[in-house]
């Protein structure tokens, strides 16, 4: 007997390449889930890893940084928040001016 496979339709789930138990430091939701204001996960609600190695939903962090009181600090470790190299590729040229200019 010969077996020909015409089409193999697999199923996979995507997940952000971060430790599985890690959640957004602001909204406490898993990164594979959305932040509270978003409807679609993944490209619709990307994550942001700082040089301080703390990671957040991009939307959550931007909202935080917009606050006067945040003074551009990481909400977790209170160091100035600078985006790490890893997630910068996600922006694809779309710079988060806010974060950079603050420095």
């Amino acid at each position: 007997m010969k077996v020909h496979i015409e089409n193999w339709q697999g199923v996979a789930a995507w997940h952000w390449d971060v430790p599985d138990e890690e959640v957004c430091g602001i909204c406490r939701a898993n990164f594979d889930n959305t932040c509270p204001g978003c409807k679609y996960p993944g490209d619709g609600c990307p994550l942001l890893v700082g040089t301080c190695s703390h990671s957040f939903h991009e939307h959550c962090l931007v909202k935080w940084v917009m606050l006067e009181t945040s003074r551009g600090l990481c909400p977790m470790c209170r160091q100035p928040f600078v985006e790490g190299e890893r997630t910068r590729v996600l922006r694809q040229g779309r710079d988060l001016d806010l974060l950079d200019s603050d420095e």
Partner: peptide
């Protein structure tokens, strides 16, 4: 496929399930 995916969508990985569907012909 997983490697290609991670190239296309940086920082993301795939986890495979055993479900799906296969079109097959037996000779």
């Amino acid at each position: 496929y997983g490697v290609r995916y991670s190239e296309y969508k940086p920082l993301r990985k795939l986890k495979w399930y055993g479900v799906g569907s296969v079109a097959i012909s037996l000779e």
